[in-house]
Design a protein around this nucleic acid. Structure first.
Lengths: 114, 114
DNA sequence: CTTGACCCTGACATGGATGTCAAGTTTTAG
DNA sequence: CTAAAACTTGACATCCATGTCAGGGTCAAG
C-alpha cells in the first residue's frame, strides 16, 4: 500500500507517517520512483505508535521501546526498566485523570441539579 | 502569601502562576509596591487548575468552566453542555490510556518472562 | 503522450504552557 | 542604612508533533 492508503487506514496524516519514518519508528520500501510502499502490518504498527504517542511517550521513548530498524528485540535489563518506568508513568497518569474526572463529574452534577 | 510561597505550596512555578493570572484563571491582591498576595484558598484553586490542565483542557476551556473573575457561577445550558463535553473527553482519554497501559503491560510481561 | 491524482523533499509555521534572561523595584534581615 | 532575597514586567526561547506551502517527480487511465 502507498502512503495515502496507510493514511486512510490509520487516520494518521501522510505528514505524520513521514515523520514517524524520519524518527525511526516506521520503515518503508521504496518503488523505483522513490515512493513509499508499506506492508499490511504497517497499519497495526502505526496504531501502536499512535497509542504510545497519545499516552505521552515521545518519539525517542517509542524508539527506545520498540526497536524497529533492527527487527530482533534486544532485551536488556535497561529496556525492561524503561518499559516498566513508562508503564508506571501511564498508570499514574490514569490515576490523576480519574481524580480529575471525578472533579468534572462533580461540577456537572452540581450544575445539573438546580 | 506571596508568589514564592504559593509556588512552593503547589509546585507551580512563579512563571506559571503569573500566566494563570494573565489568562484569567487566578486573581491576586497587590501590595503597595505591586507585589502579588494570595489568600490560602489560592492553593486549592491552583491545584484545580493544574488538574484540569493535565487533563488536557487549555486555559480558555478552564476559563469557560470556572468563571473566577465574576465569582457568581453563571449556570447556563451552554456551560452545562461544555462541562459535559469536557467530561466525555476526559473519559474517552482514560479509556484510551487504559488500552495503551494494557499494551505496555503486555510488553513488560513479554520481556520479563525470558 | 497527456492529464490528473498521488507522491517526493525541504522548509517554515503553529500552539500553548513553561523556561529564561534582563533591568529595575520592593521587601526583609542584619 | 544596606545588602540580599524576592518580586515586577516584557520579551524571547523551547519542545515536538503536525500543518502547510512550494516546486518538482511518479504513476495509472484514457
Amino acid at each position: 500500500m502507498r502512503i495515502g492508503d496507510l493514511s486512510a487506514a490509520t487516520g494518521a496524516s501522510a505528514r505524520s507517517l513521514r515523520y514517524y519514518e524520519e524518527q525511526g519508528l516506521l520503515v518503508s520500501a521504496r518503488s523505483g520512483g522513490g515512493q513509499r510502499h508499506y506492508p499490511e502490518t504497517a497499519v497495526e504498527r502505526v496504531s501502536l505508535i499512535q497509542s504510545l504517542l497519545s499516552a505521552g511517550l515521545n518519539s525517542a521513548a517509542i524508539q527506545d521501546v520498540l526497536p524497529c530498524i533492527s527487527n530482533e528485540a534486544i532485551r536488556t535489563p535497561w529496556l525492561a526498566e524503561r518499559l516498566t518506568s513508562e508503564l508506571d508513568r501511564v498508570t499514574r497518569q490514569i490515576d490523576d485523570l480519574n481524580r480529575t474526572r471525578e472533579i468534572l463529574a462533580g461540577l456537572v452534577e452540581e450544575y445539573r441539579v438546580d
